[in-house]
Design a protein around this nucleic acid. Structure first.
Lengths: 259, 259
DNA sequence: CCCGCCACCC
DNA sequence: GGGTGGCGGG
């Protein structure tokens, strides 16, 4: 059986808010190391990979591998019944028909309980290779969100160009063109504002802004986001969570005329 | 060429926010004294006159007269990509196709750059006579905004009646009638709350509230607003900016049955 | 793509 | 309490 207790319901609320426009139904794969989710969006351009390590729960117990096939719209509806500060407990049997979710207010004077029906979902298992990227950029997640939103006013695509000088987000469209350039920046007093660029090789790729804006819904999960790029492979957008848990998005670059 | 650097992008952001519902496309006329804009609204009832003196920029350089014909919706989209505290630099060649706008974060780790395509706009040049007004009323801009917003609940028009007793904003409509009367008021401790009425002759005129509410979008530019009235001439609503720069709106009075 | 509503911050 | 930014709906 599975029993997993999360101190703050808002973690799961925000994760689901951030991915449910990309994925309708998917398995939450539970085993003794935690709860994982991998799914491609309908158009197979983007991929979501979530890992909530067992250490992010207390307690966490999962004796056997269990796949919980869940409709994310249903899950979101139920999670909206939890308050951000509630303690959330997930429970499931070994061959479950439902997943049970409990929300407790911190002061213990309220207990809500929901059962969500599960579905069988064909697991297209996705091997994601562990890539060494040509460029890794860490920046405030709010800044990345702002850049993507700003450039949406001009175009549907953005080129991300990373050199040793910095990283440049650029696009052009009917009303004109625009770019935002960031340089590395370290401020020990405001580490949450740091911009860190690690480069082994210059790289320039073009991506759909619509997807990037969508990924940025995860900004509330982490002050910082990491972008990893290499030529001709999908961009990785990673929101690191506590205890090595994470929410990652992959996005295939646009190629040739698509740009 | 033009090169004009504004310490705070929010000045231009707010100016454009305040006028873009009145005017779609217009020329920014640049010369060595600064950047000016004059345009009538589509219905020719209202007129906008902006003057940003060269002293409001540092540095300011403009060798020759340049008219930058800009679609204000496009400009607003681009200005939304600037943060309020960014340093804004406008650049244009002598016979430009585009105007270049740069936004720098104060700490210099972000540089955004946009080019907006220009358009040819027929300049209907507007001579605005320098009028001696029968009444000049200065008041907190937030108070004027509040009065206009409040009275909108009752009517589409407001009469502004200025006597030596004070100034009365009055209207009536289906659900009833209402008025707000202000007297002169000076408080040396709170000069931003002062109400100053200078009168050479009593005057009473009626105006469209819709336009006045629109003008009040400029309230964020200045703590104070000045209303200037004389019989049978347009009302002047002036927001004074630093360095003798200003944003002025003119509004023709309603006459006879229109009221 | 734009407008209105809701939540968070000042 | 007001204003601004983000999210959802038309």
């Amino acid at each position: 059986m599975l029993e997993a207790r999360l101190e703050q319901a808002q973690l799961l609320k925000k994760v689901v808010d951030a991915i449910k426009d990309l994925v309708q139904d998917c398995n939450f794969d539970c085993n003794d190391s935690g709860i994982a989710l991998q799914a491609m969006d309908n158009s197979h351009v983007a991929l979501v990979s979530m890992m909530l390590k067992s250490e992010s729960f207390s307690p966490f117990r999962c004796d056997r591998n269990i796949a919980l096939g869940i409709n994310l719209t249903s899950l979101q509806k139920v999670l909206r019944c939890a308050q951000n500060e509630d303690i959330l407990t997930l429970k499931a049997e070994d061959a479950p028909d439902v997943v049970n979710m409990q929300f407790e207010s911190a002061d213990n004077d309220r207990l809500s309980e929901y059962d969500i029906k599960l579905m069988d979902i064909d697991q297209e298992h996705l091997g994601i290779p562990d890539t060494e990227y040509a460029a890794e950029i860490s920046m405030p997640s709010s800044e990345f969100q702002r850049i993507c939103r700003d450039l949406t006013a001009l175009s549907e695509s953005v080129s991300i160009e990373c050199t040793k000088e910095g990283v440049k987000f650029a696009c052009s469209g009917d009303i004109g063109s625009g770019s935002v350039t960031l340089r590395s920046h370290t401020d020990v007093d405001k580490p949450e504002k740091n911009i860190d660029i690690r480069l082994t090789e210059p790289v320039a790729l073009t991506f759909s802004l619509k997807y990037l804006v969508n990924f940025c819904k995860a900004s509330g999960l982490s002050d910082s986001v990491k972008l990893c790029l290499s030529s001709e492979v999908p961009l990785l957008v990673e929101y690191a969570l506590s205890n090595n848990s994470y929410l990652r998005f992959y996005l295939a670059p646009k190629i040739g005329d698509e740009e």
